[in-house]
C-alpha cells in the first residue's frame, strides 16, 4: 500500500511539471510546481526514513524534478498575482531582491545535487542524503519569509 502511494507521488511529480507549463494562470502554475516539490520531497523522505528501498534512479528523478522547479518557479510571480487563492507572501513583491536571493540559493543547491548525482544517480543512500539535504533546507528558509498561511 505504502509503495503504491509512493509510486503515485513519483508519477505526480512528473505530471505536475507537465501540467504546470500548459496552464495559463500563474498562481495555478506555481502551486502545481510546489506540489511537484512536495512529491519529490515525499519520495526522498520515504527513502531516508527507510519506508522505500533506496533506488539510485528514483533518487535521481527526485533531484531532477526539484531542479526543474527551481529553474522555472521564479517566472510565475507577475505584479498583481498576489491576490486570490494564494499563500504567496507580500514580501515577494515588497522585497524582490530577497526573493531573488532565496530563488538563487534554491537553484544553486539543486544544480549542485544534480552534479553530485551523476549519470546513474547517487550510489548510496548516504550519498543521496548528502546531496539532497541542502536542497530540502530551502523549502523551510524560503517559506519562512515568502509564504504566509491564511486559512
Amino acid at each position: 500500500m505504502k509503495r503504491q502511494v509512493i509510486s503515485a507521488s513519483i508519477l505526480s511529480a512528473f505530471l505536475a511539471t507537465a501540467v504546470a507549463t500548459a496552464a495559463e494562470d500563474p498562481v495555478a502554475v506555481r502551486k502545481a510546481q510546489m506540489q511537484s516539490n512536495a512529491a519529490s520531497a515525499a519520495v526522498a523522505g520515504a527513502m531516508l526514513k527507510g519506508e522505500l528501498d533506496y533506488n539510485p534512479a528514483v533518487a535521481k528523478a527526485a533531484i531532477a524534478s526539484l531542479n526543474a522547479t527551481a529553474k522555472a518557479f521564479g517566472d510565475y510571480f507577475p505584479e498583481g498575482s498576489d491576490e486570490g487563492e494564494t499563500t504567496a507572501a507580500p514580501a515577494i513583491w515588497d522585497n524582490p531582491e530577497g526573493f531573488q536571493q532565496a530563488l538563487g540559493k534554491f537553484q544553486a543547491d539543486a544544480a549542485a545535487a544534480v552534479q553530485a548525482s551523476g549519470r546513474e544517480g547517487p550510489a548510496s543512500l548516504e550519498a543521496f542524503q548528502q546531496a539532497i539535504t541542502p536542497v530540502l533546507s530551502n523549502c523551510r528558509s524560503c517559506h519562512e519569509n515568502f509564504r504566509v498561511r491564511n486559512n
Binding site: 512536495a38 520531497a41 523522505g45 523551510r140 517559506h143 519562512e144 504566509v148 498561511r149
Partner: peptide, 20 residues
C-alpha cells in the same frame, strides 16, 4: 524533526524558528 507535514508541504513563517 524535519519541518515536513504529512503532505510534504514545508513549515513556514514564524514556525520555522520554533521547528528548528
Amino acid at each position: 524533526e524535519t519541518g515536513f507535514t504529512p503532505d510534504f508541504d514545508s513549515v513556514g513563517g514564524a514556525m520555522v524558528a520554533v521547528q528548528e
